[in-house]
Design a protein around this nucleic acid. Structure first.
Lengths: 345, 345
DNA sequence: TTGAAAGCGCTAACAG
DNA sequence: CTGTTAGCGCTTTCAA
């Protein structure tokens, strides 16, 4: 704990605290010798300014908050990683909080952050959140907020997203281009908008390539678990033995499918190709390794902080916030669970 | 941003700020009616005290820091999860920072935290850290620090650990009790003490069960990657075709081994049993699912915060800190990559 | 039962 | 070039 204050230094040197303060900040109107004396002593005494006192004056904490549904999650921990790095570069520290997909917790955690007078908030909505007043209020009161990943367009603020629809389109397209004729889709619970977007991407891809859309090829994983994929793989092949491609909306479920298929002695990708979504660490460890959509969490966190910083600067200059939307590109990571691209050229 | 201050309230009600302050804190020497009036208005105006001003007086932030080698890591993100939860219960927020296993970063990040005047620090050492002065200094200056997982006994402070040696012993013992006669061990780089402890546990288990220790059965994964395990599985079986058990010091490498063995058409667990360490999410998704040691990160984070809190209280009461050491129990999670226990009864 | 005053540590406007 | 003064918002004596 730094106990040395400006006062201590000023007493020792027999000068005023304001001179010390200015000397330490290299103000141009201070004698060079005085500056040196002060700076030297400050270093010797290991002086560090009291952060509260500074914050109390400047109304800035150099702390931001990030609120995610779940921290123990490959994607979100990557986002946080990116946000922390970028924040650090600009001298900000990051408080991390979770909602556990609970609306009440979202409200509560946001209040904690606001009450701490932190400078801004990075937020990914919980699946349960269907009203946005608690967030709008915070923004109205002047707190810079940037939404990422799980967003809503009903809130007017900067946002960082991936284009789930486009990404799902590429995933499905990849299956089609590698020869799949009958492609099943495993989707998730209705709520997070991302799930629906992925479904839409799948559907549009089929339409684009003049393939029939068959509702019975849509399966639902309720809890996003590995076990769901495992179970659905069985059901799927029983109901539609001629399926030759599966697009699962999330890697963990896709990996369950892989395991389910293997137990049924179904060759992947020869008989059935499988593609996931997220590019979790484990997707390259499976046999066969999983083709998937890379969802660049680190970049998202980084960009989210950058948008927040822009807001912070705008706020400092008294300008109105811009509600920019940044879209992070995704890509198909081709591994062994899908066939090689058929060259049509 | 809460803009309402005690002053605002006092003006409106025509009383002094000190009265308002006391009324809000329910001091016994304030007229009940005044209290009610104040509290009502405060609620109406949505008053929340300015956190810096409070901190400036009380020297407490109700913020702690947690510094881990890597956030995107199943174990550490669980620790952080546990710490955040426990902290929140007691009204603390948590700033998260990473060292990326870099000594200089460890020093830098600790300084950032100390300079922010946070109340305490939860710390897991980087592998590169071999000198501890930067940490001792912080502790000496009165900052409560709790070490967890990657610790050193050269620092006198509370610690939370698992007993890596004991856990590795159980892992090896499990292989022995399920019939393995020739057990290889994959270890990691020398530095994190945990690696050596796991190796020791392996060795002691062999001794305990009167099995020969063969140096050539020890393989090293330099970078803790999946690919290492994959490669080593090949090397191992080429050099010792009669190996019937493998204990890998970390799940990711064990999963690489599983894949390597499968490609060599070696049956797991029939011909070779495999056990990992950590119980990562993915270890239950492999085929066969991986038997492993559960390393309870969540509990560790929770306990670490509790120790810190204890310290904080001791500090407030002017007492000397106790340097308690809490050992979190681990257990073998039996899955399909090892044989069933042979009942000797 | 209430309020005046002091002070936590820092900064900035202003005066000298 | 340097110092005085005032104040950020809150808490806590101490006096009334």
């Amino acid at each position: 704990m730094s106990k040395v204050t400006l006062k201590d230094i000023s007493k020792i040197l027999g000068i005023s605290t304001s001179t010390v303060s200015k000397a330490l900040k290299n103000y141009s109107d201070i004698n060079v010798e005085t500056k040196l004396k002060v700076q030297e002593l400050a270093k010797k005494l290991n002086f560090t300014p009291n952060a509260f006192a500074q914050s109390l004056r400047s109304r800035e904490t150099k702390i931001i908050g990030i609120l995610v549904p779940e921290l123990v999650h490959h994607f979100f921990s990557n986002v946080i990683d990116g946000a922390i790095h970028e924040a650090e570069k600009h001298g900000y520290l990051v408080i991390v909080l979770q909602t556990h997909e609970c609306y009440e917790d979202e409200i509560k955690q946001l209040k904690l952050l606001v009450d701490k007078n932190i400078d801004g908030i990075l937020l990914s909505l919980s699946d349960k959140t269907v009203k946005y007043d608690h967030i709008k209020n915070i923004i109205d009161e002047g707190m810079p907020v940037v939404l990422f990943d799980k967003i809503t367009h009903l809130i007017d603020c900067p946002k960082v997203i991936i284009n789930d629809r486009k990404a799902a389109f590429s995933a499905t397209e990849h299956l089609i281009k590698t020869g799949c004729k009958k492609i099943a889709h495993i989707t998730g619970p209705l709520k997070p908008k991302t799930t629906i977007d992925r479904f839409m991407g799948y559907k549009i891809a089929l339409e684009t390539y003049n393939m029939p859309f068959d509702k019975s090829l849509i399966y639902t994983s309720e809890n996003l678990f590995f076990e769901d994929g495992y179970r659905l793989a069985g059901q799927m092949m029983a109901e539609h033995p001629d399926i030759d491609g599966v697009f699962a909306f999330i890697d963990l479920v896709a990996i369950g499918v892989l395991k389910g298929l293997r137990e049924q002695k179904i060759k992947v990708p020869k008989q059935v190709a499988v593609i996931g979504f997220s590019n979790w660490l484990m997707s390259k460890t499976t046999t066969p390794s999983l083709t998937t959509i890379d969802q660049p969490g680190y970049d998202m966190g980084k960009q989210a902080f950058q948008l927040l910083l822009k807001n912070l600067n705008q706020k400092r200059e008294g300008k109105v916030f811009t509600s920019e939307i940044v879209e992070i590109p995704t890509r198909v990571v081709v591994r062994k669970s899908t066939n090689a691209i058929i060259d049509n050229s």
